[in-house]
């Protein structure tokens, strides 16, 4: 029942890490006992950094470096504005500002500011995928800075805030508690079925 009442992500993630999914599904039968083939080799540090650069919501994986709002304004003007508009109002690329308070309305506006639950996601996504036509072009300092600028545009952090590996995960996003587990099936009066999701 709790799953239907909008429990915060912290609970969701805690449950998952307690191994509830493993317990509910177990491992594929037979595989656990099969002999190892011993394929592959140990990855190099470079390989892990280049191929698997994901950043966790608790900040795990964030590199050294920092950036502030005014530095970010310059980065945004140089690398982002041509697609997202000068103030992040959206153009070829998505709108990046506004929409807070609109999610319950008939015309919700989902942006980094109104919708995204974690600031680490912004850092991770800009680092991995933006600028759209030149991904990977920004240095960590620039990613911190441009993240600060976008969060500041949304009124989430102040003008003087500096973002780094310590401060970024602490940013409180307005929609942090807005995410709930899957509640399907939700039609035809069917009962929830066991699902290989982390939340049942």
């Amino acid at each position: 029942m709790w799953a239907r009442n909008g429990v915060g992500l912290a609970v969701l993630m805690a449950l998952a890490s307690a191994g509830s999914i493993n317990a509910s599904l177990g491992s594929a039968s037979g595989v656990a006992q099969s002999p190892r083939f011993g394929v592959g080799r140990a990855p190099t540090a470079d390989e892990i950094r280049d191929l698997g650069s994901a950043i966790a919501p608790d900040g795990t994986g964030l590199p050294a470096g920092s950036g502030n709002v005014s530095q970010g304004r310059a980065v945004f003007a140089a690398h982002c504005a041509r697609c997202h508009g000068r103030q992040g109002e959206g153009e070829i690329g998505a709108r990046l500002v506004g929409g807070q308070g609109s999610l319950r309305s008939p015309r919700p506006l989902k942006t980094v500011g109104s919708f995204w639950p974690y600031a680490t996601t912004l850092w991770d996504y800009v680092n991995r995928a933006m600028p759209f036509d030149k991904p990977g072009a920004l240095q960590p300092d620039e990613v911190y800075a441009v993240s600060a600028f976008i969060l500041n545009l949304n009124g989430i952090i102040g003008d003087d805030q500096v973002l780094n590996a310590v401060t970024l995960p602490k940013v409180q996003m307005p929609n942090r508690d807005g995410f709930v587990p899957d509640a399907r099936p939700d039609v035809n009066g069917l009962k929830p079925r066991p699902q290989p999701t982390p939340v049942r």
């Binding site: 996601t121 991770d124 995410f179 587990p181």
Partner: peptide, 30 residues
């Protein structure tokens, strides 16, 4: 030991409900 809350599982591929809450990790196709 945690999901990473990627852009494509938060901003996209999540399901906004009329009450303003959003279902996340809605993996299954019914």
């Amino acid at each position: 030991d945690q999901p990473y809350m990627a852009r494509d599982e938060t901003s996209k591929y999540s399901d906004l409900m009329p009450d303003g809450k959003t279902r996340i990790f809605t993996f299954e196709m019914e």
